Amino acid sequence: MAGVGDLIGQSVWDSEGVWVGQVVDVRMTRNRRGNFGMQQQFTVSGLVVSHRRAPVMLGLTRDPDNRTSWLFKMVFRVLYTGSSLVSWDAVASTGNGEIMLRKPVKTLERV
């Protein structure tokens, strides 16, 4: 798998060859088991994909407790209207600057 930094900015295509957009943010999930907090591990749980070429989010809308500032909410809501949330399970392949999905764009969840 590519690194998280490598995913940002990649083009995303659905299973029918339709361009969905570019990755603007990566959703991570903290693994709760093992190491008892000494070394936390995270896995990619999803991608936020936007058809706009606006600046990337990079998690700026959330703090470590997953709380959000109202100002960031409003700014990013305007910038990323119509963005899609792609679960990592829907990703078929990554590489060459492109991400291919297993699903058509119509079935993706809107952010």
Rank of each mutant, 00 (worst) to 15 (best):
G37K: 08
G95Q: 08
W13D: 06
P64G: 04
G82K: 07
T107E: 15
F72K: 06
G37F: 10
R27W: 13
M100D: 02
F72E: 10
E98A: 11
G95R: 09
A2E: 11
L108W: 07
D6G: 13
V20R: 06
W13A: 06
W70I: 11
Q10Y: 01
Q10F: 00
N66R: 12
W13E: 04
M74D: 13
S11R: 12
E16C: 02
N66M: 15
F76E: 01
S93K: 09
N66L: 15
G21M: 03
L79V: 02
G82V: 02
S11Y: 05
T61V: 04
M100V: 00
K73M: 14
S50P: 08
K106R: 13
G3P: 03
R33W: 04
S15G: 03
T81Y: 13
Y80L: 06
S50T: 03
G9S: 09
L108S: 10
E16D: 14
D65I: 00
R33D: 01
L71N: 11
Y80W: 12
Q40C: 06
D65G: 10
A2F: 12
M38H: 12
L71K: 11
V26G: 02
R53W: 13
V23M: 02
I8N: 09
S69K: 03
V26C: 10
Y80C: 01
P104S: 14
E16K: 15
R30L: 03
R53D: 11
M1Y: 07
R77V: 07
